[in-house]
Amino acid sequence: MEPEPKALADILLALENASRATARPAMARLLAVSKTRSPTEIAALAASGQCAFGENYVQEALPKIDALRSLGLEWHLIGHLQSNKADLAARAFDWVQSVDRPKLAAALARGRPADLPPLNVLLQVNIDDEASKHGCRPPDVDALADAVAAEPRLRLRGLMAIPAPHEGMARRREAFRAMRTLFDGLQARHPGIDTLSMGMSEDFVPAIEEGATMVRIGSALFGARPPKQENNA
């Protein structure tokens, strides 16, 4: 099922209103999360004006990136990245939002071709210290940021987080505020950073109110994912 243009318009309006309420100079950016979505669905959303798309898996994303290359889209890797796939990611994506260790940063730098601009990098932070989540610990942000900033083939842009999905929005706001504090501290050391990626379909408005400059939205744009089919082969 192709996404409805009205869904995109409604979300952009919500982003504009939430951003205006914070009195910030620029509207928060929308990253359309296109994992499991077909090139046809992505192209339909691109035709409505959306240009930035997020994918979780390198191998799933590569055929889409190739099929839609003529559209000039901006591709973000937002899922956990193994170091042995860093070379592929460094060549295919414009942004990697899930850098959580110096070894991965170094591998991405080695893999980024010299004829492409430096790879935009966000540091993923495990802000709620969840055992099941990837991301660096908050105390490790500064050292990881320095490692990324030292790589000429990488461009440090900021931070990303996936806070725990607490039912109460007050708990999520605590995580968003903690991320904003980390971001402000990092910006004091690296003035060039400009991106705080947090907030998804259910909580992007409070995320923006607490400081997000980019939100990652999938189901609210594309609709619910179809149920997985059992493979009996």
Rank of each mutant, 00 (worst) to 15 (best):
Ala21Cys: 03
Ala21Lys: 04
Ala23His: 15
Ala23Gly: 15
Arg24Phe: 00
Ala26Met: 02
Ala26Ile: 00
Met27Val: 15
Met27Thr: 15
Met27His: 11
Ala28Gln: 05
Ala28Leu: 12
Leu30Met: 15
Leu30Cys: 14
Leu31Gln: 06
Val33Ile: 08
Ser34Phe: 09
Ser34Glu: 03
Ser34Cys: 05
Arg37Phe: 05
Thr40Gly: 11
Ala43Trp: 00
Ala43Ile: 01
Ala44Lys: 04
Ala44Phe: 02
Gly49Gln: 08
Gln50Ser: 08
Gln50Trp: 12
Cys51Lys: 13
Cys51Ile: 14
Gly54Trp: 07
Glu55Gly: 12
Glu55Phe: 11
Glu55Gln: 11
Glu55Tyr: 11
Tyr57Cys: 13
Tyr57Pro: 02
Tyr57Ala: 09
Val58Gln: 07
Gln59His: 15
Glu60Lys: 01
Glu60Phe: 05
Glu60Ala: 06
Ala61Ser: 14
Ile65Leu: 15
Ile65Trp: 12
Ile65Thr: 06
Ala67Glu: 11
Leu68Gln: 04
Leu68Glu: 04
Arg69Ala: 15
Ser70Pro: 07
Leu71Ala: 04
Gly72Pro: 03
Trp75Arg: 00
His76Ile: 04
Ile78Trp: 14
Gly79Thr: 06
Gly79Ser: 08
His80Glu: 07
His80Gly: 09
Leu81Thr: 07
Ser83Leu: 03
Asn84Trp: 06
Lys85Met: 10
Ala86Leu: 02
Ala92Thr: 03
Ala92Ser: 12
Phe93Val: 13
Ser98Thr: 07
Asp100Val: 01
Arg101His: 05
Pro102Val: 11
Pro102Gln: 11
Pro102Asp: 09
Leu104Gly: 10
Leu104Gln: 11
Leu104Lys: 09
Ala105Asn: 05
Ala106Phe: 05
Ala107Ser: 13
Arg110Met: 01
Gly111Gln: 10
Pro113Arg: 02
Pro113Trp: 02
Ala114Cys: 06
Asp115Asn: 14
Asp115Met: 03
Pro117Gln: 01
Leu119Phe: 07
Val121Leu: 09
Leu122Thr: 09
Gln124Cys: 00
Gln124Arg: 02
Val125Met: 01
Asn126Tyr: 13
Ile127Leu: 10
Asp128Gly: 15
Glu130Val: 10
Glu130Lys: 11
Glu130His: 13
Ala131Val: 10
Ser132Gly: 05
Ser132His: 13
Lys133His: 12
